[in-house]
Design a protein around this nucleic acid. Structure first.
Lengths: 132, 132
DNA sequence: CTTGACTCTGACATTAATGGCAGGGTGTAT
DNA sequence: ATACACCCTGCCATTAATGTCAGAGTCAAG
């Protein structure tokens, strides 16, 4: 299978497929003319890569365990767990940060309606510097 | 006040102060020698800019209403509300997306412990492609 | 033999705010 | 005058995955 067909089958752009190769995530054979030749397993492999990318992992992290998860069930790959845990901590920190920003925005928006605070007994006046 | 002092007072790097100027957020006078001369009000102005940046707004968005919020209480600046609402929608979408990823990670991590789902009566088997 | 579809490499662009450097001017104190 | 602190502009780098282009080679069908 050549790169165009793999791209069509997986939804990954040709550019991305070449990038994955440059990052060491996939290693197609080369034909005599220099064209990449992908094995049929490459399709699943690319889907796997894209799935982990959607989870927010970097190509570097994926490279660290891809060889394992491609050859056995994920939960037997001990390399994966710390990556997941670290990513989870990142995500939760991001969520917390976004939640703070969201709360601040909600407050500020409600102040436009001249309504009372979501807090308890605070002044309803909202100055720019009220919440940092 | 020259740029070094303003930087010290606000915590914004000199580089950033020049950037804010390039983005049209602040317009210091120039002395005969070319040095920027900031009015005392610039300190509050920069704090305001930084606050909005912390909220995740871009310099372009800030430029759209900065002139207003510097001259009157924020909630009288009608330009601000749609920016807030749009940003809030963004943030909530991001939170939702991150929450999906987080749930997926939590699931996968728990599968390493061979434990039951956090869901109700689902299979405990976790394949890579289970949740997209 | 030509056309068109495909592939290759290499390089630059994107995003947004900031860091950092080079090369030079200014101002003040000793 | 010399040292030192400060300021200026302009430029390149960062991040990570992807888009996009140019210039060239390959190959099958007509």
């Amino acid at each position: 299978m050549k790169i165009g067909e793999l791209s069509r089958r997986t939804g990954a752009s040709i550019r991305s497929l070449r990038y994955y190769e440059a990052q060491g995530l996939i290693a197609p054979l080369r034909e005599a003319n220099g064209y990449r030749e992908y094995s049929p397993l490459a399709e699943e492999q690319v889907r796997t890569i894209r799935f982990y990318l959607q989870l927010g992992l970097t190509t570097e992290q994926i490279a660290g365990f891809l060889h394992c998860v491609l050859s056995r069930p994920e939960q037997f790959c001990t390399e994966v767990l710390p990556v997941y845990e670290s990513k989870l901590a990142d995500i939760e920190a991001q969520i917390a940060q976004l939640a703070r920003i969201r709360d601040n925005l909600v407050d500020r928006i409600s102040s436009f309606r001249g309504e009372s605070d979501s807090g308890e007994g605070e002044s309803t006046r909202h100055e720019r510097s009220e919440r940092y």
